[in-house]
């Protein structure tokens, strides 16, 4: 069974006075299998972020369905949705979204505290993750005291600590320099090796080339997808580049 299934998803935004309608997603269909590492690519305005919001249950589709582990997100009530999100999804954002009032440690604990986990248990879970992410020494620091890459690794730790079924990453390298980006992508790859399913939205070819599969979205539809197969990262990078060139040139017309 697929861990994530998206069926004919449609999202239409209505402007405030109902005069204009903007179709963000027209008809999106895809599946993500357990242990997959999927990158979603597309230009600004192609509907990537809308898609991610719907996957995260932060927004509701106009029509169509999202099934996580076979469960339809639309059927979860508003009260349960936060808990559902906490238990099943991990988030990594472009701007880290760490709370500046917490130390990194407390930031990472946040989802567990919300789930009423005792301190000793949280602490036990944190140590291996912090070591793996190389932030074990930084735990007592505040977000403003550490670099962007370190902040993002703390955010990854926060996403991992709940052992979610799916990690959703929204432009995770968007605010990082190339070295920090490389490091983060390496981390994602190794986390994925350990069996973690990841869906990452990006418009960075370098970031996408580390994934197993790349979905291209254009004008609110899945336009194309590439499987890694036996390709190396470099080979995949080339393939993505040429696909993007075609996409940009407006070729195909679907």
């Amino acid at each position: 069974m697929s861990i994530l299934e998206v069926r004919s998803l449609k999202k239409v935004y209505t402007t405030r006075f109902g005069a204009n309608q903007v179709t963000a997603l027209r008809n999106v269909n895809f599946r993500v299998e357990e242990g997959e590492y999927v990158a979603v690519m597309g230009e600004s305005g192609s509907g990537k972020t809308t898609l991610l919001n719907i996957l995260a249950a932060l927004d509701r589709p106009t029509s169509g369905a999202v099934l996580l582990n076979g469960r339809n997100l639309a059927e979860i009530t508003e009260d349960q949705i936060a808990q559902f999100r906490r238990e099943n999804l991990g988030f990594v954002f472009q701007d880290f979204n760490l709370l500046d009032t917490f130390t990194l440690e407390d930031n990472i604990y946040l989802p567990l505290v919300l789930a009423n986990t005792p301190y000793t248990q949280m602490h036990e879970k944190l140590l291996p993750i912090a070591r793996m992410l190389g932030i074990a020494d930084l735990l007592k620091k505040y977000p403003y005291e550490v670099s962007g890459g370190q902040k993002q690794r703390a955010a990854v730790a926060r996403a991992l600590i709940t052992e979610p079924h799916l990690i959703l990453a929204d432009e995770p390298t968007g605010a990082l320099d190339s070295r920090a980006s490389d490091e983060l992508l390496r981390l994602f790859a190794s986390v994925n090796q350990m069996g973690q399913t990841i869906v990452m939205v990006t418009h960075s070819t370098a970031a996408a080339s580390r994934a197993n599969r790349i979905l291209f979205i254009k004008d609110g539809e899945v336009f194309h997808q590439i499987y890694r197969g036996e390709d190396s990262d470099d080979k995949l990078y080339e393939k993505i580049s040429s696909t993007l060139t075609i996409l940009m040139a407006g070729g195909g017309h679907r």
């Binding site: 932060l58 508003e78 949705i81 936060a82 999100r85 954002f93 979204n97 760490l98 989802p111 919300l114």
Partner: peptide, 14 residues
């Protein structure tokens, strides 16, 4: 701050 908390899984009620 609260929009972050929401994303991390805090309910509106909390």
């Amino acid at each position: 701050r609260f929009s972050i908390m929401r994303k991390v899984g805090m309910t509106g009620k909390e």
